[in-house]
Every structure is written in C-alpha cells, then in structure tokens.
Design a protein around this nucleic acid. Structure first.
Lengths: 241, 241
DNA sequence: GGGTGCTATCTGTCTAGACAATTTTCGGTC
DNA sequence: GACCGAAAATTGTCTAGACAGATAGCACCC
C-alpha cells in the first residue's frame, strides 16, 4: 500500500475497503489482518472502519466479525432519506423531462389543498423524472400563480422544483405533508414510465408548506417501487432521561 | 468522577458533557483539560466527543476548540416530526387480530435485515390490523428470539408491538428504515383484508433499529391506502452554519 | 448422540504518549 | 501604530500495545 501524503491514512484505507465491498452480508477481513495488509496499527484500522460503519456500509458484531450491508448494491446513491432536503437532493442525480407547462383552472380538490378559492387559475406542470436507469416517476405539479411566475423551464428540468422556488423567491419550504397509496397505472402514465398498463404503482400526493404555513406546491406522483426504491429513514424524536 | 462499572467510560463521559451543554456556539473545555477532569486519556475523551459530534450537538474546529450547536433535541440530520410515534400510536385506535405466532427458521433475506447468522431461528407473527372501518393492514413481523421471548400474546393484540417491546425490555427504538412499493394483493392477503384479489396494495418493508444500532424488528405489511390513509409529515432540519 | 466446557478468534474499550496542522495570541521590529 | 514572526494552545492523526467481553468451533465426557 502506497499512501499518498497529505491525505489521512484512515481515509485512504476506508476508500480502499469501500471499493472492495462486494455482496451484502459478507464478512470482511478481521481488523487484525487488515492491520497487516495496510501496515498500520489497529486504532487506525478501526478509524477507517468507523467511517464505513457511519456510512451504513458495514456493521460490526463483537466476537463474529465485521459485515457488509445491503447499502452497497449499485443503487445506494438513489435512495431517499427522510428529510425534505434529501428529497430535494434527488434533483442532483435525476432530471425532469417536461411534458407540459400551462396555466389552467385548478380542480376543486387541488384548490382545497393549496387553499385557493374554487375556480382559481394556477399552473400545472407535468413531467417524467429520469435517472440513469430510466424513467421512474411521473409527476404532476400544481402551483399558485404568484409562485409559478418566477420560474423558467430551465429551472424545472435541471434542478428540483423546490430548490428553484427557494432560489428565485423569498419563499422557504418548512414542512411537507404526504399521503401514499397504491394504484394501477393509468394507460398514459404507464407508457411514459415504460411499464405495462395496469401494473401497480406507488402514488404520492404531497403538499409543501412555507415557513409561514402557506401551501406552496401540490404534487401528485406515480412511481415504480422497483426501478427506484422509495426508501425512508425516520429517526425518533429523542427523549432525554 | 465515579465511573459505574459495566458501562463504557466514554459513554458516561459523553452523558456528563451532554448534561452540561448550555447555549449554542459556546466553546467547551479543551480535550486536554477534559482529560484531567475525567481522569482518562485523550483517546477516551475524543471517543466521548465523537458521540456528541455524531449526534450533532458539538462541532470541532482544529486550532480553535470544540463548540456546542443549537441542537437541543434530536439528531438534526434526520428530523421527522412524529412519524415513528405516530405509527406507534396506531395501537390506540386499532387492534391486531393474530393469525399465527411461531418459531421458525428465518428466510435468508430477513436474516440479513436482522443481521442474524444464516439459518437462525426467529419468531414470525402474522396478523391483520383492524380499525373501526374494518381490516386495513396485513402484517408479518419477524423478531430475533431474545426479543420475542419477552412478549405475550396479549401484548401483541392490544397495543403496538413496538410499544410492547419497549415496555417489556430495556430496548429502545431509535430509527426506522422503510422501503415502499406497490403490489397486487396476493390471494390470501386479499381475503383477509376484504379486497378483491389483485387489487393494488401498498407494501412496506420496515426494519426497526434500537439505540445501539441493532435491528430489533423486521415487518412486511400490506395495506390499502383508501381505508386508512398513510400520511406522513416531514419537517425540515435546521441548517447548521 | 448430546451436552459441556475449553480455547481460539474477533471486536470493544482503554492507556500514554508522539508529531503534525491549524489558529490565536503576543511580542518585537520597522 | 502597523506588520510580521515566534510561541502557545488546540484539534487531527497515529503508534503499539493491554485486557475484557462475545462468539464459534471443537474436543471431551457422560
């Protein structure tokens, strides 16, 4: 092992081990043998393993060994972790293919969610979100007109919509309310997502609220669970003893 | 400092420091002086501080010192309002009708999620959760044997399983990892949920983890989105400077 | 054959330092 | 007074072990 100067050894070791991770649940070499292989002391090896345990790629079991987790399977970048920012970070690895973008009269149930008077005009954006592996999400977004005015088509395809709204206006998103359901793919949606018609899809209805409590965006998405696993990690509010 | 035996010193030190944390941005004592105060070596102090940095309560600045953050409750990386507890609160208005409860060999994929050696025995509980409006969730729970031993059938039907585990043992649930998908109802599940076979159902695979990071429970649920809407509210974590 | 206890292996915790890198402080120089 | 450099303080990285606790495998005894 040739260590590059200027970079801590434990990070270089962590990188090397991360690269070698293969299947899930497999036992990796013991700390003692890693010491020999990388020619460092055990605390340094442990520091390197700590990095990977922290990333969720490894877990340890006293007396048994250290094992790899499932998080190594190629798609680990494509996972959603339960905070709004992580959902927004989707925009980094995916892009939206715009299908339509127009001003229309908002249907009653959407108007209610956005707290608009019945019969109001609003902006409806329809698109398909793609990842490397292909299209995985059909999304219909409804925006009140004031919000929509600040946005360009470029904003929509290149970044996440929420990020664009925050960049172009003073509005800051604070909470997100989401209702989930399972539905059979409508014909047109199935076509765009390249799945068979009437195959089961996850459907999410999300409403985003600003700091002041005003609804900012309402979105209905259809997505496949297989192609892009919808994964959430929730942490419990901590109670102090 | 009197150390209680059986509990690692670095955790006891972390607890002591956490208790003393006051305002935000304040500099805490240097590692060297903490060594003197707690009568341990510096690596041990650093291990204790690592815990608090990991929790988001402290941050370090080489050459300047270690400072407290604003996070007075919870892990600021993943903040989700009420999700786990909301899910647990299901137990208040619903009840589980037990279908089976037996000790079996754990299938490979479940063993992996629970980090059990392949071929281990575990407890499988199958049931249907009912609300006033009827059955809405088919659940298959897998528990490692040590956890399962502490539970009675009464615990299972009257309350939420998580609440029962926390009441009957020292284990405390900290995080929940959930993967969602949409599937067509298997025949037997459809019967129990009183829906047509092959109608679309939400499927969740959840793994619950204890405070120490060990998996405690793995559950696979099928549920209808209509009869009992699956609703989540996410709040954004404050960003640290 | 089946349990029982020993032993080897492995991770968990901890010691007592060393040197490096970064930042602040302070004194000296111009 | 302004600037610069040295020194001090602080965290970052790393060594070379020690002992404890947990687990699995194996030989042994009944």
């Amino acid at each position: 092992m040739n260590y590059r100067p200027g970079i801590p050894r434990y990070l270089q070791i962590a990188d090397a081990i991360r690269r070698d991770l293969r299947g899930e649940g497999e036992r990796i070499a013991s700390e003692h043998s890693l010491c020999a292989r990388f020619e460092v002391s055990r605390p340094t090896i442990r520091q390197a393993l700590d990095v990977l345990v922290q990333e969720g790629r490894l877990y340890r079991h006293a007396g048994r060994g250290t094992f790899s987790t499932a998080a190594n399977g190629g798609d680990s970048r494509l996972r959603v972790i339960g905070s709004i920012d992580d959902m927004m970070a989707l925009g980094d690895e995916t892009w939206l293919k715009l299908i339509s973008h127009e001003t229309v009269t908002v249907p009653a149930n959407i108007a209610q969610a956005l707290r608009l008077p019945p019969g109001s005009k609003g902006t409806r954006i329809v698109g398909v979100r793609h990842a490397e592996s292909g299209p995985f999400q059909h999304v219909t977004v409804w925006l009140p007109s004031p919000i929509a005015l600040a946005l360009s088509d470029e904003d929509l395809s290149k970044t996440s919509l929420i990020a664009a709204i925050e960049r172009q206006s003073e509005v800051r998103i604070k909470t997100l309310e989401q209702v989930a359901d399972a539905v059979l793919a409508p014909r047109q949606v199935a076509e765009l997502l390249q799945v068979r018609p009437r195959s089961p899809l996850l459907m999410f209805e999300r409403t985003y609220y600003a700091t002041n409590g005003e609804p900012v965006e309402h979105a209905v998405t259809y997505q496949t669970g297989r192609r892009y696993p919808y994964r959430v990690v929730l942490a419990r509010a901590e109670r102090r003893s």
